[in-house]
Design a protein around this nucleic acid. Structure first.
Length: 326
DNA sequence: GCGTCCAGGTCTACC
DNA sequence: GGTAGACCTGGACGC
């Protein structure tokens, strides 16, 4: 009975705080990305510039979040309301406030990136179109790994179908502030579900075995994203690649360090943008693209990646390329 | 309708 | 160390 597993007590205790962001900061572009990426779950609610979303941190605790921007692009503040199942200690409140700031990229200073853009024709367009947008991070690693695994060897429509079925069959419904938000399944839920059931209910194919294995690894104490961030980029990537089913591409997607997670689809886009041509073999051009990105943008290449994939419509018009039907 | 092909990687066996 | 082949399965496509 899946729904019994998915009950989460109502999150009725409220803690509120306000956070400052390093300007320029666009709340809307950051949490509601033009490409349609959600902050924490596809089922979060965004209305009148306010975001209701929910998260389960790696320790297992669940929280509802209501986030609203105040101030301006150049003097940005975010009002945060956190809903929990019990009252929070001062220590916990500070911990959560740090986690939200980290997640929203509030303390990231983009001045160097925007400086780089002044002498780079592609970046100039990106920065103008998406001024103030941040990359965001997650408090829990499992949904990132689910994303990476379901993207493997499948058209995007099928990846969406697998993720949608995982959330609908095994996700957790969190109730707070008069809203109900459906969240990603926890590693515990997936670890105790049979491979057969995952295959049948979520159409995962061989990925069912892979995801269950990853869920078990997390149960046994796999590092959190914040812990991976404290490692060197190489060590974090190597750690992720110890997971069965996580190769170089998936590790780049999941790693909190700025990577350049090019796959066959994005290789076609970047090949057109950087070399002006459609590659005969997109897979073979990936190493060249990664090298070019590192030389041209260094540590900002992860930001370039996010900005490009969220600006395909405008880039197509500006550079007279068809980047949206690849 | 039905058959065929292949997808936004990864792993393994084999050379 | 490099590389071919298998891996699940649903959806697109041609007939």
């Amino acid at each position: 009975m899946g729904w019994i597993l998915n009950l989460v007590p109502d999150l009725q205790f409220l803690t509120a705080f306000s956070l400052n962001a390093v300007p320029p900061y666009s709340f809307r572009l950051t949490v509601r990305k033009p490409a349609g990426w959600s902050l924490l779950t596809p089922h979060e609610i965004f209305k009148d510039d306010t975001l209701w979303t929910a998260m389960r941190v790696q320790s297992g605790e669940a929280f509802g979040l209501k986030l609203r921007p105040t101030g301006t692009l150049n003097e940005p503040h975010i009002d945060c309301a956190v809903f929990s199942s019990e009252t929070l200690t001062a220590y916990k409140k500070r911990d959560l406030s740090d986690a939200v700031a980290w997640m929203l990229g509030l303390n990231e200073d983009l001045r160097e990136f925007y400086c780089l853009a002044e002498s780079d024709s592609l970046l100039r367009v990106l920065v103008k179109d998406l001024y103030g947008m941040r990359r965001t991070k997650r408090p829990d690693i499992f949904p990132m790994l689910v994303l990476a695994v379901t993207l493997q060897m499948a058209p995007i429509k099928r990846s969406d179908q697998m993720m949608d079925l995982l959330i609908k069959n095994y996700g957790e419904k969190m109730k707070f502030d008069g809203k109900e938000i459906l969240c990603w399944p926890s590693p515990d839920t997936i670890a105790r579900t049979s491979v057969r059931e995952l295959e049948e209910k979520c159409k995962l194919g061989y990925r069912a075995r892979v995801l269950k294995g990853i869920a078990k690894n997390i149960q046994q104490g796999f590092p959190t994203l914040r812990e991976l961030e404290k490692m060197t980029p190489e060590a974090a990537k190597a750690k992720l690649m110890e997971l069965k089913g996580i190769g170089e591409y998936s590790a780049d997607i999941v790693s909190p360090h700025p990577g350049f997670a090019v796959d066959v689809w994005s290789a076609k886009i970047f090949s057109l943008l950087l070399f002006g041509e459609k590659p005969d073999s997109p897979r073979d051009i990936i190493p060249r693209l990664k090298k070019t990105a590192e030389e041209r943008w260094g540590g900002w290449r992860g930001y370039v990646f996010t900005y490009v994939l969220n600006d395909l419509n405008n880039l197509s018009k500006t550079f007279n390329l068809d980047l949206t039907s690849l």
